[in-house]
Structures are given as C-alpha cells and as structure tokens.
C-alpha cells in the first residue's frame, strides 16, 4: 500500500487516518455493546444509566462551572490578586454545607483563607519568582522598586 506524501496536503494524512480509525472503532463499539445489551434482554440502543448521580447537588455542580467561568472571565480585567480573593471567598461559600452556611465562623475563616492564600501565592509567584500573572485594573506596579502585585 502506498500513500502519496504531497507537501501541501501532508498535514491531513494522519488526521484522516485517525478519523477513519475512530469511525471504524466507533461503529464496532456500538455494534459490540449493542449486541451485548440485546443478549442481556435489553434493546440495542437501551438507555444507559442516569448521567448525574441520584439527587446530585445542582447548586454546587452548576454553581462551580458558572463561578469558574466568571473567575476566568474577570481575571485579566480585575487582576490576579483581587479577583482571586473575591472568587476564592465565593468558592468557599459555594462549597459550604447548610450547617456551615449559617455559622459566621465559617465565613470569617473563608475570608482569612482567601486573603492569605491569594496574597501568598501572588507574592511568591508574581513577585519573588517573577512569573507573569494576569493583570487588570487592580494591579499595582511600583517601577522604582521593580515590584508588581498582579
């Protein structure tokens, strides 16, 4: 078997082979698993089990996705440190259970963790290790000291 390696189109050779393998294996997978379901007395396309756990925590699950989206969206607008403090507190609040939600101590600890963890990470990585972090309108830059708090 021969495959013509043409310079202008060779970037598609392997992806096409991979897609071909995926289609063949996909059909095989559906056929084999379908046949096994028929053998077990179910329909060929029998519905698999529920996607989510029974009584899954809708607020925490969808809330974490939305909060993460909002966190990433705001990161390079607000700046790493302030944005992370806000969202770390929000994540701590989202992850609290009903009992913790009602206790002020939990929220005070959340604030402390958010502020301390974000400042430590920001200073350690951004200032000491000079790793670039997302900057925004809350980023403080002191050129005289060559110091940036992202």
């Amino acid at each position: 078997m021969r495959i013509n390696v043409v310079y202008s189109t060779q970037h598609w050779i392997f992806p096409i082979i991979t897609i071909g393998v995926l289609i063949i294996l996909g059909i095989l997978l559906i056929a084999v698993e379908g046949a096994a379901r028929v053998k077990a007395g179910k329909g060929f396309f029998a519905k698999p089990g529920a996607f989510f756990e029974k009584n899954y925590d809708k607020v925490k699950f969808w809330g974490s996705i939305v909060l993460m989206f909002a966190y990433f969206f705001m990161l390079d607008k607000i700046g790493f440190t302030v944005c992370s403090i806000i969202f770390l507190f929000l994540f701590n609040t989202l992850f609290a259970n009903k009992e913790q939600m009602g206790t002020p101590k939990y929220h005070v600890v959340s604030v402390i963790i958010s502020v301390v963890a974000c400042l430590v990470i920001s200073i350690l990585f951004g200032t000491i290790f000079a790793i670039t972090l997302p900057s925004g309108f809350c980023t403080i830059e002191i050129p005289a000291l060559s110091l940036i708090i992202y």
């Binding site: 993460m68 992850f95 913790q100 972090l133």
Partner: peptide, 24 residues
C-alpha cells in the same frame, strides 16, 4: 476538601496561565 479545592483551583490557574508565559 471545601477549603482545599478553591486554593488548588487558584494554583492550577497560575500554572496554566504561566505555561506559555501568560496566555488566558
């Protein structure tokens, strides 16, 4: 876990951002 995961997420974000010198 509820205290650790947010910090882990933040550190992952730092790592991801720094992968190619700062890309969202």
């Amino acid at each position: 876990q509820e205290r650790l995961y947010p910090v882990v997420l933040m550190m992952c974000t730092v790592g991801a951002y720094a992968t190619l010198n700062g890309r969202m």
